[in-house]
Simulated scan of single mutants.
Amino acid sequence: MRRTPSPIDLRALQAFVAVCENGSMTGAARQLGVSQSAISQSIAALERDQNLTLFDRESRPPRPNAAGRALLELAGPLIEHAQMVGNRIGDASRTGKMPVRLGCVDSFAATVGPELIRAVSNSERQISMWSGLTPGLGKQLHDRELDIAICTQTTLNDARIVEVPLFSEAFVVVVARSHLQGRHELDWRTLAAELPLIRYTARSVIGQQIERFALHLGISSPRRYEFDATDPLLSLVAARAGFAISTPLCLWQARHYLDEIAVMPLPPGRLGRRDFFLLHRQGEWDPFVQDIVALTRSVLEKSIQPSLARALPGLPDDALG
């Protein structure tokens, strides 16, 4: 009967990876700053504990066999996670509390993010913030590289992840103000017949969502201009190169263009809105999550919504909330 393997010793695992990378125990010893004998003993202990042979010792230099290759593939994430745990424990020791790692989509990080950082900096809680695309943030949360993620789409098939609705915003047409001068009762259908659609790239979630909505509305336009960010998109809109479909939060992120653009509503419906969610692991960070939800809604209601309403009179009342 084969005995159950013992838990893997991380130092022995580091020695194993070093031997694989260097092709010899001598090179591994030099890399880790230990004796060759220590490396040899670590490898022997690892094989004994796992009841496996990890190297083909008939080859010169010794190469990992099938079991060794499988372990090598899994070793990197294990070692990185152990280092991350050590770093976080050190951070907690210095500050008295575990820092929260928060990942946000770019439009949230650039608008609500500063207020969030300002509020948290006045408390005992420490926070680290990253921005990125929704798919990457979801993976980072799943891999425990983040504690909390704020995304615009939930695709994680993980019962341990809690999804908290934050808010939603409507897609709106964006056009240069100069294009509207002297014209009355111009609607989005007329605009779509006159100008090409300037798009967000299809590799972004917002780009995919807008493309589905545009097709639903019957907006057909050649793919001539596509951007990852709102700034270059609005620069072309302001230059009357075309019109765009965007959201209030994205417009506020690039608010230095607000004097040059105008907005028009689009037909309401589920396809016409973008939802934001806060994701976290069940039973983890619950009080802090509620703080983020309350603060986010306060920033939207008291700061961003009134400012957008003043700058863009054509924005629907329910465009953000």
Rank of each mutant, 00 (worst) to 15 (best):
residue 176 A to K: 04
residue 241 A to S: 14
residue 143 D to Y: 02
residue 195 L to F: 13
residue 2 R to M: 08
residue 172 V to F: 03
residue 96 G to N: 08
residue 1 M to D: 14
residue 19 V to S: 06
residue 307 S to K: 02
residue 39 I to F: 01
residue 91 D to V: 00
residue 203 R to A: 09
residue 212 R to E: 14
residue 10 L to A: 10
residue 299 V to D: 11
residue 49 D to L: 00
residue 97 K to H: 10
residue 218 G to V: 03
residue 201 T to I: 00
residue 217 L to Q: 08
residue 136 G to C: 05
residue 315 L to I: 04
residue 229 A to E: 15
residue 159 A to F: 00
residue 52 L to T: 11
residue 58 E to G: 13
residue 110 A to T: 11
residue 251 L to E: 08
residue 279 L to F: 05
residue 303 S to E: 13
residue 321 G to Y: 01
residue 228 D to I: 04
residue 207 G to R: 04
residue 277 F to T: 11
residue 261 I to D: 03
residue 258 L to P: 05
residue 214 A to Q: 08
residue 125 R to P: 00
residue 137 L to E: 11
residue 168 S to N: 14
residue 242 G to L: 05
residue 101 R to S: 12
residue 300 L to R: 02
residue 84 M to R: 15
residue 68 G to R: 05
residue 21 E to Q: 14
residue 128 S to V: 09
residue 85 V to M: 10
residue 236 L to P: 02
residue 296 T to Y: 02
residue 11 R to V: 07
residue 1 M to K: 10
residue 259 D to Y: 03
residue 191 L to V: 15
residue 75 A to G: 10
residue 143 D to R: 08
residue 63 R to T: 15
residue 43 I to W: 04
residue 50 Q to P: 00
residue 52 L to G: 01
residue 51 N to K: 07
residue 287 P to C: 07
residue 60 R to G: 00
residue 50 Q to V: 00
residue 70 A to I: 09
residue 204 S to M: 08
residue 24 S to G: 08
residue 56 D to I: 06
residue 55 F to T: 11
residue 235 S to M: 06
residue 238 A to H: 07
residue 71 L to V: 11
residue 255 R to S: 12
residue 170 A to D: 12
residue 129 M to W: 03
residue 80 E to A: 14
residue 196 P to M: 05
residue 318 D to I: 01
residue 156 L to R: 09
residue 43 I to A: 06
residue 276 F to Q: 06
residue 304 I to D: 00
residue 290 Q to E: 15
residue 150 I to L: 13
residue 24 S to T: 14
